[in-house]
Design a protein around this nucleic acid. Structure first.
Lengths: 207, 207, 207, 207
DNA sequence: TATGAATGAGCCTTCATTCAT
DNA sequence: CATGAATGAAGGCTCATTCAT
């Protein structure tokens, strides 16, 4: 039972995080200073240190938060029982694109850091990010493998296919940003889904 | 006719660049210090500044070099006359994967900065990188559009398709890095090519 | 009502300035390092930057402070109503020499920078220094012109005379420094004043 | 008997000095780099070091050169026999103003450094500059003392008067620079001379 | 002697972190 | 807990000087 104090503390902590997100997204980890964060959060620098022991922890929290949510989406949608694989996949794509839409900033961070993580495993932030990412890959991979057993998907390496599936979805985000599009990403849910189904060689898909 | 001095100077310049590449790839722009670069290049810090007026210029040179080469590959392969579209695409994929293979570090940098560029257009390094990237997209886009006119590819937005084509290729790189694979990327040339052809709805492809 | 914190901050700021003055006077702007200033002020380098955004601002503050005070002296003494011009001039000379006496260091800086300003107008520090100096010249100039109208002073270019008047006063300072004299400058008030009166051709002066 | 080589060397040395003068005048000692000097002298940096063992020596040479010339002027004009003191003084003023006119740059340097010298005796450049300056003061001082004995000048401290005499002359230079005047300084020879004579209380001067 | 690449000490400035109030 | 002044370890960059060619 969290006391009122604890709840307030958690609230304050989240507030700082939310203000920090856009700064990190805009300037990257190194170029974002604690002063900037403190100012954006309308508190003193000391206060920021009261909630986060250092800059890295603050950033790591963001990474974990974002990548954790991504993993959750996979977990929640892909294993829903009593639903066709196609429907589940559609749900997954939709929630993912919605997630991108809602938290563009956290996504920019994840993508930038994702690549850096892909690059140097020992990276401080790589840990939780990589873990969440790999779990997400596993959910997708398993989803694909089961679909193959059911004869719904064509036979191909499920693990690699999982990467490709994620790539197709994130491509939407990259395309949107590169073309400075203002259309909501979710508009492309159906198109993206069918592109994935095609990749997976889903039988029942009709175009 | 460049004098011996000039040639040596150019040689030395390249040497510093080569040593800097892996540092930037590993730590990113901000976290890589001029001291690190100087030490890696086995020269003094002053010497590095003798060849590059500042850290940004050094980095920009790398970005332009890498992204310029990527654009060239597109230009050289996709517009080859007297060759079927399928063959041209195969060549494109192969050269691109070879390029990844040869210069893994420069690619890591391009991808990291690519994402950062995708994120904030005003970025200092965005200029040349974005320009080269967009030109590459244009080459691919045109290649697709012509193929559509010839009835070789299915009808879909050529511009967006171009992004997807690139994404499919770079996905190989990402996958390779994430799984710490040691297989040469070029092994996947055929598979990647056919995946792209499938995306484009190429008629003659048989699996 | 400035809070205690604000007052302390202002106090500290002044302290750093006072310690910096003698360093600048001794070594000049370029040769004085922020490390020297920090050490002299018994604080860390970072603290200096807490009070002054950079070296130039610190120096500019000194220049403005000193040259502003010089201008004030002219303003306050020369336009005093109900006082003879001779008395006013005497007051002016006295206060000026006192000012030299009190802040020998700031004067050294003003004279050094004054010459540099005289030399290159575009100088960063020239602005406020030159402005204050010119205003001082204007006060003196006006004082002389009015004296001429009253028939107290001989006829001559008031503007140029103003420069000469100042030169005569500062000559005392230069002489004192060159001869390493320890006599208080104010001892020469009367002598200097009569020298100026002679220059101005003041009627009532008897020797 | 200087060999041709030696003469050429001396010639080259002077050339570098001449090119360096305006740089030092414009930017001051610290802000003038050896690169700038080398470029201005159209030689390599190494060559500059071939003629001057370091930056300080180069600068000191300039100072000695300039201050030596000033001393010479005093020596040559003030002790001319068979000439009235008034005429000698006129000659002195004229040559001095001409010197200012011809070598504005070296003068700027002397005035800037002169003040700095006046300030810290231990200064590296102070030595020769101070020595030449003091000798010049001595010449003037002696000239005044003798004039006093002859009854030509009023009685006053000859040493201090010498400083004032020099101040009156240099004031012309300062005034000219401050007002950005383009008139040749020598135009003011007569006016300046009579101002000095007035200071000295010369009997025969009529205005 | 001329050249200019190499060196490295040192400068200004930034910023994560600490800590007294 | 909140504050923000103080700290000092780096970092980017400059430039006088050296030295091999």
């Amino acid at each position: 039972m969290p006391s009122r104090k604890e709840r307030e503390r958690e609230f304050h902590r989240r507030f700082i995080l939310e203000r920090a997100v856009s700064l990190f997204a805009q300037h990257g980890f190194e170029a974002t200073t604690m002063d900037m964060i403190a100012e954006a959060a309308e508190v003193s620098k000391g206060t920021v240190y009261n909630y986060f022991s250092n800059k890295q922890e603050l950033f790591r929290t963001l990474i974990e938060w974002g990548s954790g949510r991504a993993r959750e989406i996979g977990q929640e949608t892909l294993s829903t029982p009593d639903t066709s694989r196609v429907e589940r996949l559609g749900m997954f794509v939709q929630l993912f694109l919605e997630f991108f839409e809602t938290g563009r900033d956290i996504h920019k961070i994840l993508m930038q850091e994702g690549d850096r993580t892909a690059v140097s495993m020992k990276d401080t932030f790589g840990g939780p990010l990589r873990q969440n990412f790999m779990q997400l890959i596993d959910f997708i991979s398993e989803f694909i493998a089961e679909g193959q057993e059911e004869g719904v998907f064509r036979t191909m390496d499920p693990h690699k296919s999982a990467f490709l599936v994620l790539d197709i979805i994130t491509a939407e985000f990259r395309y949107s940003v590169m073309t400075e599009s203002t259309h909501p990403l979710t508009e492309n849910t159906e198109e993206t889904t069918s592109r994935i189904l095609e990749l997976l060689g889903a039988q029942e898909v009709t175009r």
